[in-house]
């Protein structure tokens, strides 16, 4: 019992250090020029996408009049991508900017030495950084998502229904997890790389790989495993080819996120996998309820959360095992 109390006391002291670090990191981010740049970038793209969506909305309404409010987030118009696709592409940038010099920046400026000499557990440092970064991400994402909705209401006169609000909230939660994954990755690189320039370059390379090259590689690999060069092969292999390409693509968090978000924001999406004609036979065209949409993308959400945790765990283990000395 006494040992338990001692352990508990130790934990509360640890939390005091964590709290101080968390508050400091949060204040640092909020007052930094970097955060200002992020905010500017997100504002410009969001309002550009809102403008595009509003101009394309009447066209979209003619083809399908339900869940119009959600279309504010998914419609692209005037060749401006939709809010959802903008975030899928640029969201990682927020995570990267917040984390790429988390550890090596401290190491370079000589503050890490001083920090670890304080009576705090070493993991408080990296946990504090990750939590503060995630908080900033959540603040940014939710303010932007809500602002888009608010301006959408003002601009179009549409009032969102309860289900639409819930779907948007789930979309924003997804976005937070997705961007936090990139925060975790960038912190991981900041632990591995000595210089913050190297870590920034590495994480940007990974971002470009996942958002552009992964789909190319997936189609090449699928084509090699299930060739479809003539009609006969196409008949035999098309199902395997498509499924393999899809699964390979889903390794990329970019694809995983895009797929999940389009399912959540479009109730008309009924399946995320291949559907054969025989499976569709007798199906009544209609919208999925929120619960069913969520069920469809539940693996995506857990997958993204697992990726995020894996990235952070890598950073955590790397940091805990690393030598502290600067040279």
């Amino acid at each position: 019992m006494q040992a338990f109390a001692a352990k508990f006391g130790q934990n509360s002291e640890n939390r005091a250090g964590l709290k101080a670090l968390y508050r400091k990191e949060l204040a640092d981010h909020l007052s930094s020029r970097r955060f200002f740049i992020i905010l500017l970038l997100i504002y410009i793209t969001s309002f550009a996408s809102l403008y595009g969506a509003m101009s394309g909305l009447s066209e979209a309404a003619q083809s399908d009049g339900s869940f119009l409010f959600l279309k504010l987030y998914t419609t692209s118009g005037n060749s401006i991508p939709s809010f959802a696709s903008f975030i899928a592409l640029l969201g990682p940038f927020i995570g990267m900017l917040l984390g790429f010099d988390a550890i090596n920046g401290e190491r370079m400026s000589g503050t890490l030495n001083r920090l670890v000499a304080q009576p705090i557990y070493r993991d408080s440092i990296i946990i504090g950084k990750f939590l503060a970064g995630s908080t900033i991400i959540a603040i940014t994402v939710f303010t932007m998502g809500i602002a888009i909705g608010a301006f959408g209401v003002l601009g179009t006169g549409l009032a969102p229904g309860l289900e639409e609000v819930l779907r948007i909230a789930i979309f924003l939660v997804f976005t937070c997890v997705y961007i936090s994954f990139w925060l975790g990755v960038s912190i991981l690189f900041s632990v591995i790389c000595r210089h913050s320039a190297t870590s920034a370059m590495s994480v940007i390379a990974l971002w470009i790989f996942f958002s552009i090259f992964m789909s190319l590689i997936a189609s090449i690999v699928a084509g090699a495993v299930y060739p479809m060069s003539n009609d006969w092969e196409a008949l035999l292999n098309s199902y395997g080819n498509y499924t393999l390409e899809l699964n390979l693509n889903r390794i990329s968090p970019y694809y995983l996120y895009s797929e999940a978000v389009s399912t959540i924001l479009s109730p008309s999406v009924r399946s995320v996998n291949v559907v054969t004609v025989s499976q569709l036979e007798g199906a009544i065209s209609g919208y999925l309820s929120l619960g069913q949409s969520l069920l469809l993308v539940w693996p995506h959400l857990t997958g993204l959360a697992a990726l995020m945790l894996a990235a952070f765990a890598g950073a955590y283990v790397g940091f805990m095992r690393q030598e502290i000395r600067a040279s």
């Binding site: 000589g110 503050t111 030495n113 000499a117 600067a326």
Partner: peptide, 16 residues
């Protein structure tokens, strides 16, 4: 570490 103060070489502070 609660009773020991450490002044590293090249001590650094948060510049902002």
């Amino acid at each position: 570490k609660r009773m020991v103060g450490y002044l590293p070489d090249n001590v650094g502070f948060y510049p902002d």
